[in-house]
Design a protein around this nucleic acid. Sequence first.
DNA 1: AATACAGTTCCATATTACGAAACAAAAGGA
DNA 2: TCCTTTTGTTTCGTAATATGGAACTGTATT
Lengths: 253, 253
Amino acid sequence: MENKNPIQVADRLFGALELLAEHGDMGLVEVSEMLGLNKSTAHRVLNSLIYMGYAKQNKENGRYEPTLKTVATANKIMGRIDVIQTVRPYLRRLMEMSVETVHFVRLEGCEAVYIDKVEAPGNGIQMVSRIGSRLPLYCSGVGKAMLARMEDQEVREIWEHSDVRALTEHTITDYERFQEEIHEIRRRDYALDNEENEVGVRCIATAFEIPAGDGRYAFSISAPAGRMSEERIRELAGYILKIKAELMKEWQL
Amino acid sequence: MENKNPIQVADRLFGALELLAEHGDMGLVEVSEMLGLNKSTAHRVLNSLIYMGYAKQNKENGRYEPTLKTVATANKIMGRIDVIQTVRPYLRRLMEMSVETVHFVRLEGCEAVYIDKVEAPGNGIQMVSRIGSRLPLYCSGVGKAMLARMEDQEVREIWEHSDVRALTEHTITDYERFQEEIHEIRRRDYALDNEENEVGVRCIATAFEIPAGDGRYAFSISAPAGRMSEERIRELAGYILKIKAELMKEWQL
DNA sequence: AATACAGTTCCATATTACGAAACAAAAGGA
DNA sequence: TCCTTTTGTTTCGTAATATGGAACTGTATT
């Protein structure tokens, strides 16, 4: 059998808090039943949360709800996190799995900005470091991956503010076509850049958000088109989604 | 004397969690000293947090750090919040204090979108409801208020993606001048729209962010230029900052 | 008015958290 | 290298603490 929590009330306190977080507002008996607690015990637990400012009681109907103090605490935690440092080991593993160069970008305004990269070794000519440089959203894997996680309105919004032009013969410049592409990306959770930004370079990318912060991020695997067959892309898609899942797991998202 | 927490350990559990949230990573004795606890008690409390997934111990040096589970819980709370419903009472009070029409907007892409408004009564011709309609950031009070809370890079980014044109003779179209304006807004925490968007209409606006969500918001007081003297603006600035402070207090931000 | 159900308070009880002390394992100095 | 100091971990008798049954109050519902 598993070992117990060294403090029993802790389970009840945090259990109640999580319950309120999930259900929004609850009655006392409701809480007590869901946690398997005596009405009296639940009452004391909830009052303790209220005393500390993590919950409050609606004056009207007496129901209990969570406050935003949890959010404030969460913000402090997020504030100390260095996204680049935390994500780097994952990027490194992704590079090792794919043996291709991996990029990490962040959304700023209507563009993506390179904030980190892990170069594949012995890839002949090393590209100039792109850290800090920007690229449009509509014609990049990382950009499309991030767009796909926004609402349609916002996608349209950014499309209209972008200087859409055919950078290569593969660049998507028709909005109808672009919308289909976005839906496709939503379905499979990764985006492809099929030489849309630069001739001879294909990318596969996926995006995520960091709550409690203005964070929209994406990372990608880039390689010469010659090394990116249909089958190879499927393989890389597996890698990139696996790494992302691990990251999300560590981050409890 | 104040009444005590109905559960003493609760103070210690959440105290430890908040401590970790603030300091990032701490040693056991450090925690025990700051909370005035016995080393042994601190150890049990921290292990309880670890057991529940709210903290973890660094394998390398044995130090304790918070996990992102708190953030996940905070997200659930934020996810249930209806920003418009929550903010409306504040907007209403602001309207009552100023007896002017109040607007509430949200940032979407590179534009502001009206999401709510509280009309001042008996203001003659009621303007057509603008809910859902969009306006540029560079030439509106709410837009500038939101921009002022971003980093310089992102401001520049959005400026460059905006179709900057002189909608009125007061519109700021020079970037140097605009930057000064932004710095001024940061200093006083509210923005002015001096007929920059529409002739004869002045606004005063302030912005805020909602963590754990992609939320950048702003609200404003709009009135005919004739009712917006220097002195009246100072008065309204007081109102709008007061209301914002109250909102931030309720939201624990 | 009667009933049912929600939240609140009380209190004797034993369960639970407490902390001193002893232990283990690194880190730092001589 | 050895000794000292510091930090994390475990134990255990004890006292304080959380527990939950029951009684109480207030508010909807019939």
